[in-house]
Amino acid sequence: MSTNAIKVESASKRYGKGVVALDKVSFEVGQGELFGLIGPDGAGKTTLIRILATLLLADEGYAEVNGWEVRKDYRKIRRHIGYMPGRFSLYQDLSVEENLHFFATIFGTSIEENYDLIRDIYVQLEPFRKRKAGKLSGGMKQKLALSCALIHKPAVLLLDEPTTGVDAVSRQEFWEMLRKLKEKGIAILVSTPYMDEASLCERVALIQKGHILSIDEPKKIVSAFDKPLFAVRTNDMYRLIQDLRAFESTHSAFPFGENVHLALKNPIWPEAIQAYLAGKGHTDIEIHPAQATIEDAFMELMGQEEEVNQ
C-alpha cells in the first residue's frame, strides 16, 4: 500500500482564547511503523492523538488515518483504529473477560476470531480473567486496555501515554508487546513523556508547546547533538547548576538524574572545569565524559526554539 498510516499537514488547534494546543504540526507515519510522540505534559500529544482518533476537530490543517480524512470519513476510521486514551477507560465494575468480550462485540468480532493477535498479552491476564478491571494493578490495566484496543485487528493503533504510571518492569514488557505488534504490520503511534522510551521507537517526533521540534530516528536525533558533554556532580548540587551556567565555556547545564549534564561551547579539558568549580568553593567534584541521550537533544532543541522565539 502506498498510503501512509497517518498523515498530518500543518494541523493547528486552539482551546478557548489564546491557548494554543497545536501549532502547524505536520508528520507522517508509514504502514507498519512504530512512531513515538515524545514530549512533556501539556505539549499537545493528547490533542494530536484525539484529532487522529476523530474525537476532536483541528481548527486548521489536514489529517488522515489510513487514507481516510478525519472529518469526513470518521466512521470508517473509527472502525479501523485501536484507540487507548491516556486515562484508564475501561469499565471498572466489569471483569477482565467481560470488558474484552464487550469491546470485541461492539467492533463486530469475537475474542476467538482475533485471539492470535492478543494471545501474548492476554495469557498474562488469563489468571485474573474473573477479576474486576478496577482491581487490577496499573500494568495489568494497561495490558487489558491494549487487548481491548486490539481485539478488532485495527490497521492503526493510537496509544496515548500507555506507560505513564506503570512500573518499570511492566513498561518494558509493554514496549516488547508493541514491537511484536509492529512486526504483524500494525502501524502504531504512541505518545510518552519518558525520554528514555524514545530509543524503542523507529522514528520519533519531539513535541513541545504544540510545536514539533524534530522528527527523525532516535539515533540520528541523538547524533545531531555534537557538543562535548560531561556529567558533573559535587557536594552542592543546587549551586552547581547556577555556577556552571555562569561558566564562560558552558553552552548549557541541566540536571540529569544524579548529575548535571554540562554541554560546552568548545572542547576544553575537564581539569579547567574542575579548577573553576574548586575556585567557587565546591568539593567532592566528579567530572566524567557523558554519552548524549535523547533528553540532551531535546533540551538542546528546546533551547534553540526559545532563542528563535525571542
Binding site: L55, Y83, R87, I106
Partner: peptide
C-alpha cells in the same frame, strides 16, 4: 472516560 472509547468505536 469510557464515553471517549465508545465514541472512537463504530
Amino acid at each position: 472516560g469510557t464515553m471517549e472509547v465508545l465514541l472512537a468505536s463504530p
